[in-house]
Design a protein around this nucleic acid. Structure first.
Lengths: 226, 226
DNA sequence: CCAATGCTTCGACTATGATCGAAGGATGAA
DNA sequence: TTCATCCTTCGATCATAGTCGAAGCATTGG
């Protein structure tokens, strides 16, 4: 009857509350064990196991077994992007899971999205880098310019390190709260990790919120002015 | 337990096969009546009615009543963008509804996506306009440059006509097949309509496929060179 | 007014799948 | 080896919601 990709299958996969909780928890980018995800989703280990199997079969998750632990993570940035897009729809039409509170405002300001910075802070960083032509956009492809390479190495990140990852260096990711692009991809993750190492930012425990330290606040404005 | 938008609600809404068919049918951009959608979805009128009610309540659809007909359409470009994103996931993970056939190849080349041009043709048009600086990208916002305004009016579209629409003039939409951006928004729709008026393109009946005429082929290459 | 069409509501049936208890396999620690 | 932890599989229960037949509104046309 119809042709094209089977959208219902994927959507139904995301459409269960327990599975949606699991996926949302994994948006933070860290790989989590099955039991951790069970508690995140608010179901027993058995139930979570069956959900994880389905998500795995559906290609949304990736599994790495380490000893008796099984670590699950999102299978790729495209999954994260789709989830953000769905969040945008849900938020735009006023279906917030909980009432909009101070926590939401914090999330809107800075949060982690699959290991890179999202929220107004993330958008600010992206805009700043675009404005100064450290990044350039062509179509949907974002690339690091020559000036950008210099900037990044002076920022303290070594991009020349060998990598076996085939993931794109730069990737635009649509922000559900700000409705603008922020930087994802390997570079986005590296910059996030770097700021974490320098104690500019700390992750909220059990939350996607990102807290800027006083130093971080100052440095961020200095490196990424509008 | 969790915070943020209620993603499961929206995803579950899209996750039913009948509703997914309805939404996919509406991706073509035209408003369709309840009975038309019922036949598209392959269910009876009663069933479709209940689905349409739910989609309406969920904010995914928009309703305009005309006489005894009720015309349903997608509530906005953000909905279309999310659907495309889901298609990308589904296609990427190999869940095609039907076997990949010639029809799919045609769809990949040129199709209508919420009343604007998508597929490799759509991407080509977008790239061409970006390259020649008729469009400029800043973050997620796409804007028509001064040169772009000149180009559009020589193309034969009058943008000075008064509009009560608050929809953005330019909007990037991620293509599920090409995985690049193509032009959506009011301008994207206007350009599509213009090419339709000039018989450069015709829509496939009951399909999202777009057929280029010989004239259209030639003109398209002339106006949007790579 | 009546008849026809488009659409929705109601009610009942049914199936899918979400859930958890219990049990079993796998790994690591002692 | 023995025990504990992590995780999965099996089986049974139960609720949600997708489906359609029948009936009821609403609108149009004669």
């Amino acid at each position: 009857m119809k042709n094209g990709p089977d959208i219902a299958r994927v959507a139904a996969l995301i459409g269960d509350p327990a599975r949606a909780n699991i996926l949302t928890a994994l948006m933070a980018g860290k790989a989590l064990t099955a039991t951790e995800l069970a508690s995140e989703a608010g179901v027993t280990a058995q139930t979570a196991s069956s959900h994880l199997k389905r998500l795995l079969d559906g290609g949304l998750l990736r599994l790495r077994g380490q000893g008796r632990h099984r670590y699950y993570s999102l299978s790729g940035p495209d999954v994260a992007a789709t989830l953000e897009s769905l969040m945008g729809l849900a938020a735009g039409h006023g279906h917030l899971r909980t009432r909009t509170g101070p926590k939401d405002a914090k999330l809107r300001e800075a949060r982690v999205c699959y290991n890179h910075l999202a929220g107004t802070r993330g958008v600010q960083m992206y805009r700043s880098m675009i404005q100064r032509e450290l990044l350039s956009e062509a179509g949907d492809h974002v690339t690091l310019t020559d000036r950008g390479h210099g900037f990044i190495s002076s920022f303290g990140i070594d991009l020349s390190a060998p990598t076996r990852s085939k993931a794109p260096l730069c990737l635009g990711c649509l922000d559900w709260s700000a409705r603008e692009t922020h930087l994802a991809g390997r570079l986005g993750r590296a910059m996030f990790a770097h700021m974490e190492d320098r104690d500019w930012i700390t992750r909220g425990i059990g939350s996607r919120h990102v807290q800027f330290s006083a130093l971080g606040q100052e440095m961020f404005e200095q490196w990424f002015p509008v």
